[in-house]
């Protein structure tokens, strides 16, 4: 025989999924939300997204090429996902320089210092976002009002998010029912017609992405459902106890970044737990922390903080919460 045979241990076939495919699957799932945000926020959305994605890829390339001196892996799509998610968490009128600083923190500090893809304990996009929120609070909290294609970039008309309206109003002693008049209706919020970060507003677009990722088996239902479920449960209790001070659960789910966080941020492979049991605990933790921050905390929105806090518990959960092994407990019958 002229050519030699390959030998390797079994299995000798491999599934079709690759890291790249999964990452681009997430990118595809984010597209509906990207289109709606361009539709609502116009030029600003395009500029912010492009800046964020390009700078994330560039930083990853530069760090791998000149600091780590490792093979370049920017084509695996993980930097694109980080860039998109970071952009989705920003208002569409934020200056380019701030986005670049945020990308540097996201990729440089949160991802590459730990060794790159697969090793970062915290979600890079969220670390970048929280860094920007703390460092540039004014720019990060002046939300453009969704006005359609005509909306400019830096000169967009700004307004407050529904969550901020409620929080401020309650602090000033206004009644909740009066405040609810000032914010968009539930249907408008579902369609995304409200102030907020460019990617988080359109609930329906995010849900399309969720269904797509479930269908493609990119993620499982455990984390998103437990995050949303625990928020619904917790806010229902608060609402039933005192409907004058606490908004209804539907408002809490549609307002702010709950859907974006639950579907795309909390499910980030690297920073989420690995077995179904811990996934549900993790999701519930995020939900409860979010509501606590929203209702009693200083910030009107708390999804990013909640996810980052729960990220810190993931290694612990992976070590101590184990799936029940096959044959561990004999049940006959």
């Amino acid at each position: 025989m002229s050519n030699l045979l390959n030998i390797s241990p079994s299995p000798h076939t491999h599934g079709k999924d690759t890291t790249k495919k999964l990452m681009y699957g997430v990118v595809l799932a984010l597209m509906p939300a990207l289109f709606t945000s361009v539709f609502y926020f116009g030029t600003g959305a395009v500029i912010v997204t492009l800046t964020s994605v390009i700078s994330c890829i560039t930083f990853e390339y530069l760090i791998q090429r000149f600091i780590l001196k490792k093979p370049i892996s920017i084509t695996d799509g993980s930097a694109i996902v980080t860039g998109l998610l970071l952009a989705f968490n920003l208002p569409s009128n934020i200056p380019v320089a701030i986005i670049i600083i945020g990308s540097l923190i996201a990729i440089g500090v949160a991802k590459m210092t730990f060794g790159g893809l697969g090793n970062n304990p915290f979600n890079p996009a969220l670390v970048g976002r929280v860094f920007m929120l703390i460092s540039f609070p004014v720019q990060m909290t002046s939300w453009p009002v969704p006005a359609g294609f005509g909306t400019g970039y830096l000169d967009a008309v700004t307004g407050a998010t529904p969550l901020a309206i409620i929080k401020e109003g309650l602090k000033n002693g206004e009644s909740l029912s009066g405040l609810m008049e000032k914010i968009p209706s539930a249907f408008q919020m579902f369609m995304g017609k409200m102030g907020g970060s460019m990617g988080e507003v359109a609930a329906f677009a995010l849900l399309i992405g969720f269904v797509y990722m479930l269908y493609k088996k990119i993620i499982t239902w455990h984390i998103p459902v437990s995050v949303i479920g625990s928020i619904a449960l917790f806010t229902s209790i608060l609402w039933l106890v005192n409907p004058e001070l606490n908004a209804d659960p539907l408002f809490h789910i549609l307002a702010g970044g709950v859907l974006l966080g639950a579907i795309f941020m909390a499910t980030d492979y690297v920073t989420s737990p690995m077995n179904p049991k811990s996934m549900i605990i993790y999701g519930c933790g995020i939900g409860i922390l979010t509501v606590i921050i929203r209702v009693w905390g200083a910030y009107p929105e708390g999804v990013s903080f909640a996810i980052l806090i729960m990220n810190a518990f993931v290694p612990l959960m992976n070590t101590y919460i184990k799936p029940k092994r096959f044959g561990e407990e004999v049940k006959n019958g």
Partner: peptide, 8 residues
């Protein structure tokens, strides 16, 4: 060489 090892 009589074969090519291709595993880990």
């Amino acid at each position: 060489r009589t074969s090519i090892y291709n595993g880990a």
